[in-house]
Design a protein around this nucleic acid. Structure first.
Lengths: 254, 254
DNA sequence: CGAGAACGTTCCCAAATACGAACAAAGTTC
DNA sequence: GAACTTTGTTCGTATTTGGGAACGTTCTCG
């Protein structure tokens, strides 16, 4: 691992693309300049370069920038090149059919969980989620199932400071979180009690395809559809699915 | 539109990401240096910057680079922010169910067609395709359906020089291609007679959501499953689907 | 197991980029 | 509709980046 010599223009260009990818609405040059704290003149050249390659598109009329067509190719290829995600597609299909609820496969990235793939619930009430989106790991079942397996010294690095509240149920006390993770490790699965989104409970099991694990499988269910035996049933299905994925995947191919 | 002042390091960084996205296998620094004609020392800084942001990942052991997790977010957002693609999802589902074959929605990008979304055939024999991938427009039904609607002076710019052969059926003569496009315009749909992939025929109609159009809808079918009435039936379904999409979409929202 | 090739990394100067300020064009307010 | 605000664009120079060559390390092959 070499010294930390970052090329500023590249770093900023990526920042621009990421911001536009997150933004609901296309952004003007001035908005970007303000948000990213980059001088307008500098932004100008960067935006022009990104536009030239089709990574961002500018609307001639409004002068606003949005993500471009070439970004599409790049995103797909991550999914397609990763053997774990490729292998788990069929398992997700089956899991979604069995549970009838929204299922996700997610990966730990720093303090965040990134959704790698999903299958939507057949029911009208849906959880909002998007592939590629980052959520605080400690507020999700996916994240907690992975965090629970980390060695004590690594855990610290994967937790944000402070534990920011997302709902009234979010665990914001470090001690309480540690206790929850210990419980998770003991029973072998994680539970999200409306800690990330009000009205949504989640269950997740870590995929032990690496040590420590960085991927997990989850099922998210609106509280209205949770019954006495839901947890038991769903967790059993999740465990079966995780076992099937582990069977299919050797290890991450480089 | 400002003058063409491209920031070289950014341009190169994007080139690296695009190459890694296209590559089947992870690449070493030396391979990238050779392919992209960038000095190793320069690449070093660029790769480090890209790695720092999670756009590419390096395997510590082999020293090879592959596309990274952060690229995922970016690709999804293009699809989600484009109202045409969002609106056409349900129509693609229906079209795939009706035809039982692989259906695509594609967009013209320079001389290429980019697959925006797809539904796979239920049959075992499948066409290889990937969302985000570029194919020469003039060799595909999708591309030809759009090219046929372009004004004469614009057409020239959307054709590569020369018309490179992909299969024995590829139309490599400009005159022949113009004649085919004239026929396409007349009958209102395009036919790909194994011009892109041997053994696969395609039918496509342009989506007249803009003038000239840049999007199209297609159905790709292995020749073995083509019968006397296949063309007629499939084209009728495509036209209905195109009408439904046009009905749903106002125009591209900026 | 030893020689040779290939690879990743570091260094420093030539070449590029970044940015403040100034300008022009468009949009807003009264 | 005039003055004001805001936005996008251009320019020249201080600052950062790029690249040839050289270094140490790891593979490769006989």
């Amino acid at each position: 691992m070499p010294g930390s010599k970052v090329v500023r223009s590249v770093d900023r260009a990526l920042e621009i693309v990421e911001l536009l990818a997150r933004s609901e609405r296309p952004q003007t040059l001035a908005e970007l300049s303000h948000t990213l704290d980059i001088p307008k003149s500098t932004l100008h050249a960067l935006l022009w370069t990104l536009t030239g390659r089709g990574w961002i598109e500018s609307d001639e009329a409004s002068g606003r920038f949005r993500i471009g067509l070439h970004a599409l190719l790049v995103g797909r290829s991550y999914v397609e090149s990763d053997s774990l995600i490729a292998m788990s597609g069929a398992v997700l299909d089956q899991l979604a059919a069995e549970t009838g609820e929204t299922v996700h496969i997610g990966r730990l990235d720093g303090t965040s969980i990134v959704y790698l793939d999903k299958r939507e619930s057949v029911h009208p009430l849906r959880l909002f989620s998007a592939i590629g989106r980052h959520l605080p790991a400690f507020t999700t079942a996916l994240g907690k199932s992975i965090l629970a397996e980390l060695p004590e010294d690594q855990l610290e690095a994967q937790l944000p400071q402070p534990l920011t509240r997302l709902t009234p149920h979010t665990i914001t006390d470090l001690g309480a979180l540690r206790a929850d993770l210990a419980l998770t490790r003991e029973r072998g699965y994680a539970v999200d009690n409306e800690e990330n989104s009000e009205g949504i409970k989640g269950f997740a099991v870590a995929l032990r395809t690496s040590e420590p694990p960085h991927d997990a499988l989850s099922c998210a269910i609106p509280v209205a559809r949770i019954h006495d035996d839901t947890e038991e049933t769903v967790v059993a299905r999740l465990r079966e699915a995780a076992d099937r994925i582990r069977g299919r995947v050797s290890s991450r191919a480089f």
